[in-house]
Design a protein around this nucleic acid. Structure first.
Lengths: 138, 138
DNA sequence: GTGACATATGCCGATATCGGCATATAATGG
DNA sequence: CCATTATATGCCGATATCGGCATATGTCAC
């Protein structure tokens, strides 16, 4: 029995419940980008984005539920502003992979996709399962 | 006419076509995490993750289509390895928001969510739409 | 209060996602 | 060749997502 035992009951994992998902939607990112320049009322976003207002409101709702934006009532307007706090986990996660694109993998950039195991492991010819990942340690 | 003119034809934006989406799935992140320690054949991932093999293969497929992993044939095994290149756009995107959680918003950390516009703009009392985002320029 | 403005919501349909399962494909070993 | 191992795929059903539209809610102006 492996590690996590696999709870095979839910038809789907998470959804729009975390920052990762919220940000997976391009429009939502666009909204955040706009808000990063400063707070804006919905109408402003609607105008700039060129989307129907309900759509924008819905995206804002998702962003809000995830905590990526805060709202403030201003008369009959609702002013949204960025709250980058929940963006940090994402940053922390990707940052751990920084090494994989900066240097060291650089030269493999397109090469890895081209070369076959033939070319790559030409002399070794290992097909016994024992070798499969004998040297994980990078 | 605003900026993007809004193409109101598609029922959905992107999907599993970009790194943002691929990474929005927790299991997929988990797989990448495992692969960041070194390449692994599918079976290994299956064992560690405790998920049914088809599920893992499907997630790997998504990751592959987005370019986040590369595959190598090794006898009857398929060895997957991380390819962090397509993670960089994500990193670049979030990094731009770094300031929003590091300092300056730090002290507002939980406060912002608590205080209402009343408390916050107590003395100003602006409700005319002209002020709504007068000082965007941060 | 009535009406205009600003925004949020609800319902709908199309589509996409994800897991489950069976099965296809491919390579290996006897 | 056949069985086994390793992995990929296809189909299914449940559910979630997203846009479109109408409409509810709330606020301000008159």
């Amino acid at each position: 029995m492996p590690i996590s035992a696999y709870n095979g009951a839910m038809a789907r994992a998470a959804s729009t419940t975390d920052a990762f998902n919220a940000v997976a939607e391009p429009r939502r990112r666009q909204i955040l980008d706009l808000l990063s320049a400063g707070e804006r009322p919905v109408n402003d976003l609607v105008a700039v984005l060129g989307l129907p207002q309900p759509i924008v409101s819905k995206h804002l709702r998702v962003l809000r539920e995830v905590g990526l934006v805060d709202v403030r009532d201003l008369g009959r307007q609702r002013v949204y502003c960025l709250n980058g706090r929940h963006l940090k986990p994402i940053h922390d996660w990707v940052k751990a992979y920084e090494a994989s694109w900066s240097r060291r993998f650089e030269r493999l950039d397109g090469v890895l996709e081209e070369l076959t195991d033939q070319e790559f492991t030409g002399q070794q010819e290992f097909r016994k399962k024992e070798d499969r990942h004998g040297s994980d340690g990078d």
